[in-house]
Simulated assay, not measured.
Amino acid sequence: MTGIRVLIADDDKEIRNLVKKYLDLETYEVDTAADGEEALRLYEAHSYHLVLLDLMMPKVDGIEVCRRLREKSNVPILMLTAKDQELDKCLGLGIGADDYVTKPFSIHELVARIKALMRRYMVLGSDKAAQQEAQIIRYKGMTIDPKKYIVTKAGEEISLTAKEFELLHFFASHPEQVFTKTQIFRQVWNSEYLEDDNTVMVHIRKLRMKIEVDPSNPRLIQTVWGIGYRFIGEQDE
């Protein structure tokens, strides 16, 4: 894939240079930022297809950068986190990050994860035939439009990240079918490089906060104890 522009924000110069070197080999256009303020300035000045954020950065940390980007964009966000930052990692995913990689990381795994996000964001999104075949899904009070990546409930648009939308669309496309966390991860994240129960759980929790009347007592995305999750909804004719 060419014509893809990526923003790397990390205060570690060696990491920035290493990742840029390998993404250059993929013919991506790459900009780098040494802190959160610079990352936000660059994002305002350019159009990016993916943002790679380190959690711990000076001036403005990765969590705050992610939060501000999510206020205006559904651009895929991949976060870098240290192994002992489990709470921060959960928070990062909870406010809209699409994926994360822990440090120290394999550069080949990181590039593979970036390419997987790009396939879903760019290739699937620009596949006109697939878009024409995509059908709007309607449940009582909720509409899911896979062409526009828009969800409305009671006539109001719900702000979802790209990954939250894909998760909801996957569930709604298979009503009442039970899926394990591993099955959900492989289908929605389209990757074999990481099978992380926590990633799925955090995204489902965040999605419930946005679509359920009572997130603590979910009626749409239900937990099947000991197995996984299923989607229950009364579909419009």
Score class of each variant (00 low, 15 high):
D24N: 15
E26Q: 12
I8P: 12
D11C: 02
G36F: 07
Y48V: 13
Y22I: 10
G36Q: 04
G36N: 00
L18G: 01
E26W: 06
D24V: 07
Y22L: 14
L40K: 04
R16S: 05
K13F: 12
Y28C: 15
D24L: 14
E38N: 11
T27M: 11
I15L: 04
A45I: 06
Y43K: 09
E44G: 15
R41V: 10
H49R: 07
I15N: 10
N17W: 06
Y48M: 10
E38A: 12
Y43L: 04
A45F: 10
R41E: 15
A39P: 04
L25F: 10
L18R: 09
L7V: 03
Y43Q: 04
R16E: 05
I8F: 10
D31I: 00
E26R: 13
A45N: 15
E14K: 03
V19Y: 04
L50W: 08
A34D: 13
V30Y: 06
Y48E: 03
G36V: 05
K13P: 11
S47H: 14
A34L: 11
D24M: 08
L23Y: 07
S47L: 09
K21L: 14
V19K: 07
D31E: 11
K13I: 07
L18N: 07
K20E: 13
L7P: 14
Y43C: 03
E26Y: 03
A33Q: 00
D31L: 08
Y48C: 00
K20L: 00
T27F: 13
D12G: 01
N17E: 15
H46E: 11
L25D: 09
L42M: 05
I8L: 09
E14M: 06
H46Y: 14
D11W: 04
D10L: 03
S47I: 13
A34M: 11
L25M: 12
R41G: 05
A9S: 08
D11E: 12
A45M: 08
Y28D: 10
K21F: 14
